[in-house]
Design a protein around this nucleic acid. Structure first.
Lengths: 207, 207
DNA sequence: TAGATTGTTAATCGATTAACAATC
DNA sequence: TAGATTGTTAATCGATTAACAATC
């Protein structure tokens, strides 16, 4: 009966909830409440309960939420109860940092391949077991292996062409670090990360 | 008369508009319209006009917006018509990438100092002219110099203590890369960047 | 039982969109 | 002038919050 899609803004908060639950686990906590989560995240408890109610009933009246149970459910909802291979384009400083980032594995992601166009990066082992490949082979390799997610860490002027190549080859979701708004057709999802955008958001309030 | 603060969600779009205008300049464009901007950004033209109307009248009926004029106004509104010194904490892979990032200078930011706690990083020149300092001196240095903005690029378990030190020393705005929700008092602004959160937002839609 | 907290409904609040007079 | 596009108003749409019955 409930045919309406869950609002994207709600979906966007689920990873935050999941991260908080995983953190609570490191503190050896077993039960939490919408109140406690809200206090930690700066979100109202009502909003957290409402958000979760889109997906089912995960708590117990009078008690709260079993942390492991809710965590497992959120992982399922977000489809990170499995590992996703992610292809990374760009082996500069940022690409290097992303390839070496230890935080992906525990949260459902594995950098499966790295591509660059620069001759002095191609063939180098950017991290144990991961050799930088030539971007001219990107399309072929994506089609062959069937990767669905990519991280774009190339200069601004190359980002749109790289995105086009990826989408044409079957990639459905992009995380873009280039300081440019990617244009994508409907059916493709994009998230943008641009530190200068965030800093400028902050300076507005600094008078 | 208009005493109401501009909604934060509107403020958050201004840096996107600014980035698009700067991009149009690189294409040697001089005039644009809310329609064109909206098409490029995936935002309705009405929303762009409404957003801008909170701050004044920047366009001309029948013509559109002078790109340089609107860009200059947005820079003023966002307070990036000047340069901001930013202190960076964490000199790992990510800190290294941020310290070397060429994109900050043109958008109002300068990494003024880098701190780390690791003995084999302290004293090393992370980038031309920028020597990694010992984090035990962070509080003292921040108070002395008066930095107002910081980027946190330390492991999750150190992020909150580092944030506390920074806030106690007078920092008012934080950009946090650690995968944890920082708790801050009102009056302090925080933005979070967590690639895994964005990737999980994407996987929701990948079935 | 008494106390606590959920899931949900209805009310409130806020943001987006549509439409158009003004005007370049 | 005719055409285009702004700035703004009012209508619509959607998200958040408050409140509380249900119940553990």
């Amino acid at each position: 009966m409930d045919n309406k899609p869950v609002p994207d803004i709600v979906v966007g908060r689920l990873p935050i909830y999941l991260r908080a639950l995983t953190f609570l686990k490191t503190e050896h906590r077993e039960i939490t409440s919408s109140q406690e989560l809200g206090d930690r995240l700066g979100i109202s408890s009502a909003q957290i309960r409402k958000d979760l109610s889109h997906f089912g009933e995960f708590g117990k009246q009078g008690t709260g939420y079993d942390i492991r149970h809710l965590e497992a459910n959120l992982k399922q909802i977000l489809h990170v109860d499995r590992m996703w291979d992610v292809v990374l384009i760009g082996a500069g400083d940022l690409g290097h940092a992303l390839a070496n980032y230890r935080g992906f594995a525990g949260r459902g992601f594995h950098i499966a391949a790295v591509f660059d166009k620069s001759g002095d990066k191609i063939g180098r082992e950017i991290v144990e077991g991961l050799v930088v490949e030539d971007v001219v082979t990107l399309s072929e390799r994506v089609k062959q292996v069937g990767w669905k997610m990519a991280i774009i860490a190339v200069p601004a002027e190359e980002a749109q062409p790289v995105a086009n190549t990826l989408m044409e080859a079957g990639v459905k979701a992009l995380l873009n670090y280039a300081p440019i708004s990617l244009m994508v057709p409907s059916g493709i999802r994009v998230e943008h990360i641009d530190p200068a955008v965030h800093l400028q958001h902050l300076t507005y309030y600094l008078g």
